[in-house]
Amino acid sequence: MKILTSLIIGAIFGIGIAISGMANPAKVLNFFDLAGTWDPSLAFVMGGALITTAIGYRVVFGARSQPLFETSFALPTNRKLDFPLIAGSATFGVGWGISGFCPGGAIPALGLGYSETFIFIAAMCVGIVLAGSLKSMVIRNTQDIPFTEK
């Protein structure tokens, strides 16, 4: 059941991304090209998604103390504005501006079957895995754990 609802909810996400234009790098890049071929459509995507979610989350959190399938809502608790957040987000922005793809736009675009999307996603997955192993390496080397060997 969990798998089925997740599949359907993912499908709604994918259709939303696809018809909104977020899966189209040409359109995404034009939103950011204020000085050139500007296309303001993405403001409508972000606005529509944000307002809908803000209202819906209020209803969900107001009506229920736990989700239907789980014992608690898995919400991020970190509230620190730290260096990884700022530097990572700035890095993401540079990559988004270079490619026109963000993760949420690229995954549904895979379903349209163009080779460019596969190339981008493959590189992005390598980036995620590399960053993950780099992070765990740094944590291993900086933590002072006397009982484990290095």
């Binding site: 234009g21 977020m22 899966a23 189209n24 790098p25 040409a26 359109k27 890049l29 972000m46 991020p76 970190n78 990884p84 957040l85 700022i86 530097a87 990572g88 987000s89 700035a90 890095t91 993401f92 922005g93 540079v94 990559g95 988004w96 270079i98 490619s99 026109g100 793809f101 963000c102 993760p103 949420g104 736009g105 675009a109 349209l112 163009y114 460019e116 999307t117 190339i119 981008f120 996603i121 493959a122 590189a123 992005m124 997955c125 390598v126 980036g127 995620i128 895995v129 590399l130 960053a131 993950g132 992070k135």
Partner: peptide
């Protein structure tokens, strides 16, 4: 509608950068 203005090289570079960025930034759009 779908069109990708950047070259394949830029897609690979952009993909790597996006992957690293969203991982450390804990999220995307």
């Amino acid at each position: 509608p779908f069109a990708v203005p950047p070259s394949t090289t830029l897609l690979v570079i952009g993909g790597l950068i996006v992957g690293v960025g969203v991982y450390f930034g804990s999220g995307c759009t």
